[in-house]
């Protein structure tokens, strides 16, 4: 279980202080798929990096299964938006996926198994020997996802992973994530600025305000577990939910915090 309690983050520098996150509290239960959605520039990435242990929060705590997160915890994997810069360009695809496993000191056999399984799971069974930059953007992001799931994390953090791929690829990758989540039972925290994506993917959507960030609403998504691009997006309930989220975010954008 992932617990975020009273999280605050203020950037200081040049004698100015910028408050990015103000008092966030929420919980992601084991095996949940939670989407964080908010207007652009609302500190989503800051939040995710605090949770991943890549940034030290100014206040509040993040705990994973009761253990406070002070640095990157072993049971967590992050998929970044910038797939092109997140894969090691000097390593082939298989070596990229294998690297964190070496770091975990898994035996060679087990590593090979995991690399094969995870690359097959993202539909890249024949790409082992390619360099990342030989692949298309969508395929590169698949490699990053494969690397994350091969790591066998309990929590998978995704920071706008599909923001830089084309619409068609994006739909495929969304279904891939849903599928992997259902199959592996991993806890997923998915950050996006795309409202449709959040509603389509999530079992629950946390709507964030603009910076300094607070949670505006914790919205359960009561769509059926089996979703597909064609039918789910056409259901009236989907439309209602996305309209609701949209209105909340529009309102958030127009609300100027009293003390800003």
């Amino acid at each position: 279980m992932l617990n975020v309690e009273g999280l605050r983050k203020t950037y200081t520098g040049d004698g100015r202080a910028v408050e990015a996150i103000r008092d966030l509290t929420f919980t992601v239960p084991d095996g949940d798929l939670t989407c964080l959605v908010g207007p652009s520039g609302c500190g989503k990435t800051t939040l995710l990096k605090c949770i991943a242990g890549l940034l030290t929060p100014s206040g509040g705590t993040v705990t994973l299964d009761g253990t406070p997160v002070t640095g990157p915890p072993p049971g967590m994997a992050v998929v970044f938006q910038e797939y092109g810069r997140s894969l090691f360009p000097w390593m082939r695809v298989a070596a990229n996926v294998e690297l964190p496993l070496r770091q975990k000191r898994l035996p060679r056999e087990r590593r090979r198994e995991l690399v094969h399984e995870s690359l097959a799971a993202v539909g890249l069974a024949d790409a082992h020997a390619a360099y990342p930059w030989q692949l298309s953007g969508g395929m590169q992001q698949r490699v990053a996802i494969a690397r994350a799931i091969a790591y066998e994390p309990r929590v998978l953090l995704m920071d706008e992973p599909f923001a830089a791929v084309d619409a068609q690829t994006r739909a495929d990758l969304e279904d891939l994530i849903r599928g992997l989540w259902q199959r592996l039972g991993v806890t997923v925290l998915f950050v996006t600025h795309d409202i449709d994506e959040a509603v389509y993917l999530g079992r629950r959507v946390l709507i964030l305000s603009s910076s300094p960030t607070v949670i505006l609403e914790d919205l359960p998504i009561d769509l059926p577990a089996e979703r597909d691009q064609l039918h789910t997006r056409a259901t009236p309930r989907f439309t209602e939910l996305r309209t609701h989220v949209y209105q909340q975010i529009q309102a958030a954008k127009n609300t100027v915090h009293a003390d800003r």
Binding site: P74, A77, V78, F80, R85, L99, Q103
Partner: peptide, 18 residues
């Protein structure tokens, strides 16, 4: 060294000689 790459390495616990 690219910032995203550094953070990726950190989040996968890549430290020390590795």
């Amino acid at each position: 060294v690219d910032g995203v790459l550094t953070e990726t390495a950190r989040s996968y616990g890549l430290t020390g000689p590795a």
